[in-house]
């Protein structure tokens, strides 16, 4: 049985696509056959983050409309053996995703032996975002420690609990909270919401905390998911989050400000 995981947030720009790329790559690196689907119809970006933008021939909507087979549309990742990407369409027709069509594609992926299907949701709470979360077994809700992002995350959690297929069946979507762009120094100074605050407000179990880290932009510049950078804090934090998603007990890191020695201050090397 394939496990369907939606990466969602409500608010835009909080790191859904970065997270989708990192988590799907992490699962594949751990030996699980994984597919990652871009649900952002009209504004696809996952292909760029995963460096396969020039290999897109057919897309998600082509498959739904029967213009291409799923096998033709899936792009095999060059770096990880078990990873495949299904790019979003650039069509402007936002309703191109039908519930039946999406269900069919998910079912076909499961039949092909995929263990994990990661759905990269668009921002907002409209059709595309709804389609991305509707069939989910689990949800990774990405939030920045910032008021509008936390509020929107709460809204998305409400939708998961009332409008998803699991909810319609009287079951629950397993919810995970992933806090990104976390700056422990600012938290210590009382300038930023802390992990415990966000966890308390959203009442959702913490999957991971990704610290604000220069390696994230460097990774997207090159189209290499940040989890491939095992030296970076963000890469390590994403690897931890993937391990927790697989049921392992891993302690949270990078929650406290680091005290730099004089030597480190003089020869500052940014991870």
């Amino acid at each position: 049985m394939a496990k369907i995981i939606v990466v969602t947030s409500g608010k835009g720009g909080v790191g859904k696509t970065t997270t989708s790329a990192a988590i799907s790559t992490g699962l594949a690196l751990r030996g699980h056959k994984t597919a990652v689907i871009d649900f952002d119809i009209g504004l696809r970006n996952l292909d760029l983050i995963m460096n396969c933008e020039r290999r897109v021939v057919y897309d998600f909507v082509n498959v739904i409309n029967g213009e291409a087979t799923l096998k033709q549309a899936l792009i095999k990742d060059k770096r990880s053996e078990n990873l495949f990407i299904l790019p979003a369409s650039q069509t402007r027709d936002k309703d191109a995703l039908s519930k039946e069509g999406v269900e069919q594609v998910l079912k076909e992926l499961a039949d092909m032996g995929f263990e994990y299907i990661i759905c990269d949701s668009p921002a907002g709470i409209e059709h595309g975002a709804f389609m991305a979360l509707y069939f989910a077994d689990e949800a990774v809700v990405v939030a920045n420690p910032e008021v509008s992002s936390v509020r929107d995350s709460d809204r998305i959690l409400g939708i998961l609990q009332s409008k998803s297929r699991k909810a319609e069946l009287g079951e629950n979507v397993v919810e995970h909270l992933l806090i990104t762009r976390y700056d422990p120094h600012r938290v210590a100074r009382g300038e930023m919401l802390g992990v415990a605050d966000v966890e308390e407000i959203l009442a959702t179990k913490l999957l991971g905390v990704i610290p604000e880290c220069q390696s994230v932009l460097k990774a997207s510049n090159q189209g290499v998911p940040v989890i491939h950078d095992p030296e970076s804090k963000a890469g390590k934090a994403y690897a931890d989050a993937v391990a927790r998603l697989l049921g392992e007990q891993v302690e949270h890191r990078f929650l406290m400000p680091e005290h730099k020695s004089l030597f480190q201050r003089l020869f500052r090397r940014s991870a």
Partner: peptide, 12 residues
């Protein structure tokens, strides 16, 4: 200057 606690209260 603890603006984080203001944010938390408003959010709650």
């Amino acid at each position: 200057n603890n603006t984080a606690s203001i944010a938390k209260e408003r959010l709650q």
